[in-house]
Design a protein around this nucleic acid. Structure first.
Length: 425
RNA sequence: GGAGGGGUGGCAGAGUCUGGUUGAAUGCACUGGUCUUGAAAACCAGCAUACCUUCACGGGUAUCGUGGGUUCGAAUCCCACCCCCUCCGCCA
């Protein structure tokens, strides 16, 4: 959610954002301004009437004490009339407020000035590439054949027991998951992140806070009877951890890492995109979240990005960094990087991390604030998050890129102590 | 799941029975000042959040877990819901 005051003062920038993000009609901004105007004039009228009613009620108390019965009675009558008006005005003000709030939820975040303007994924900027693409002297296999040959992942029984997209990891496959999770958490710990274990379900308020509701409702599994959603990312519980809180400047930055399974309905995807480990309904991810002061948020974004890129470099996976253009970056972000690893068996790039600065957009919804100085007014802080990392596609790339002529998989040095083996066969 | 108790400002804690200048006593913490070589102590003052209005000074509204209700007037009375605590039961 944007600051209404910002929209009032910089409506043309907000219109630019809507146009460049393809996030609806620019006309929305004018609707917001009108709704805001209407809401404020109603609020003023309502408060003036309330003020008069309060004054009348106070007079009654005083007149009663002084024993001026007649005056008290006429004041009671007057107060009754005012009360009826207040009730009407309250109702219309509430309607106006709701109308404004709903419109505000449709206004996207404004992209940072460094974000390229573009329409489609083609206009994302490849900002960095690491590593040489591997070459092989023998025919190579995609990971879904490797996992089957080596008995690492059982997709079919997963389908039987839960459904497509809910695989079993078996033996070394399961151990590889655990090794990666531990490696990622340890690396985050060394980098100063506080490790979190979070609830795997959240309520509607939390989903609204990070922006999954109302527009991305179809993404989430819902426990209807209990009003709970299975988390599609640890971002939701971890960011909402500090909903409605006020920090002092000394408390910041706060940096959390959290491993959780993630659940995504992913309605509407098909074909090679969902083959094997490429896209699952349940997958494991370590998420990194920063709470920072506004002036530090872009430095923090780069810091988080560097940390995640180091993980990929340690894993010796060729990857590229995309700076997402306005048209492909999503509703809530101000700036977003995607990291993609090379998948040799599929000869394509797979997204394994998405790293974003939300500026105040999420924090405003959640009322997460800080005081720049003791006694000063509380301000909305900035939130940043990124995957560090999502497992399935990392596993796919590790298997495909490190396959050997004899059918085994070599394990990158950094994982050997975690896995307890230097090769999987 | 059964029975009982409770949710008040950064924290602690009055006020609720007996509705009326109570946005809320008091203490602690915090900020500024006096004093002091400096500090402590003492003393004085300030110290919730959001919104509306005003060029500004200021004025106003709402908020005592949440939402409704009664009343001229609700932290205080009534209803529903949420959360916490104690005891019993069940259980990894």
């Amino acid at each position: 959610m944007l600051d209404i005051q910002f929209i009032r003062e910089q409506s043309s920038r907000v219109k630019d954002a809507i146009r460049n993000k393809h996030a609806g009609e620019e006309d929305l901004v004018d609707q917001v301004l009108e709704a805001d105007e209407a809401n404020r004039s109603l609020t003023t009228r309502m408060q003036e009437t309330q003020s008069a009613a309060n004054q009348a009620a106070r007079d009654i108390g005083r007149l009663m004490k002084e024993g001026l019965k007649d005056e008290a009675n006429s004041a009671i009558e007057e107060s009754g009339r005012l009360k009826a008006t207040v009730k009407e005005l309250e109702e219309s003000q509430r309607v106006a407020q709701n109308a404004l709030d709903e419109l505000l939820l449709e206004i996207p975040n404004v992209p940072h000035e460094s974000v390229p303007i573009g329409h489609s994924p083609d206009e994302n900027v490849v900002a960095f590439e690491f590593g040489d693409l591997p070459t092989f002297s023998f025919p190579i296999l995609p990971h879904w054949e490797l996992t089957e040959k080596l008995g690492l992942v059982d997709f079919d029984r997963g389908s039987k027991v839960a459904g497509a997209g809910f695989p079993f990891y078996v033996g070394w496959g399961a151990r590889l998951q655990r090794a990666l999770i531990n490696y990622f958490l340890d690396a985050a710990g060394t980098a100063g992140y506080t490790e979190i274990q979070a609830p795997l379900v959240v309520n509607a308020d939390s989903a609204r806070g990070t922006g999954q509701l109302p527009d991305k409702e179809d993404l989430m599994y819902e426990a209807v009877r209990d009003g709970l959603y299975l988390i599609p990312t640890a971002e939701i519980p971890v960011t909402n951890l500090h909903r409605d809180e006020i920090f002092s400047a000394d408390d910041l930055p706060i940096r959390y890492s959290a491993y959780t399974p993630c659940f995504r309905r992913e309605a509407g995807s098909y074909g090679k995109d969902v083959r094997g480990l490429n896209r699952l309904h349940q997958f494991d991810k370590v998420e990194l979240v920063h709470f920072v002061t506004p002036k530090n948020s872009y430095d923090a974004l780069e810091e988080l990005r560097t940390h995640v890129e180091n993980l990929l470099q340690e894993l010796k996976l060729p990857y590229r960094r995309l700076l997402m253009c306005t048209g492909d970056m999503g509703f809530t972000q101000s700036k977003k990087y995607d990291l993609e690893v090379w998948s040799a068996g599929q000869e394509r790039w797979l997204e394994v991390s998405s790293i974003s600065n939300f500026e105040a957009f999420q924090a405003r919804r959640m009322k997460i604030r800080y005081r720049p100085e003791d006694g000063s007014k509380a301000q909305i802080l900035h939130t940043i998050n990124g995957s560090g990392l999502a497992l399935p596609r990392i596993v796919a790339a590790l298997l495909e890129n490190n396959q050997q002529a004899d059918g085994s998989i070599s394990v990158p040095d950094v994982l050997i102590p975690y896995l307890g083996a230097d090769s999987i066969s």
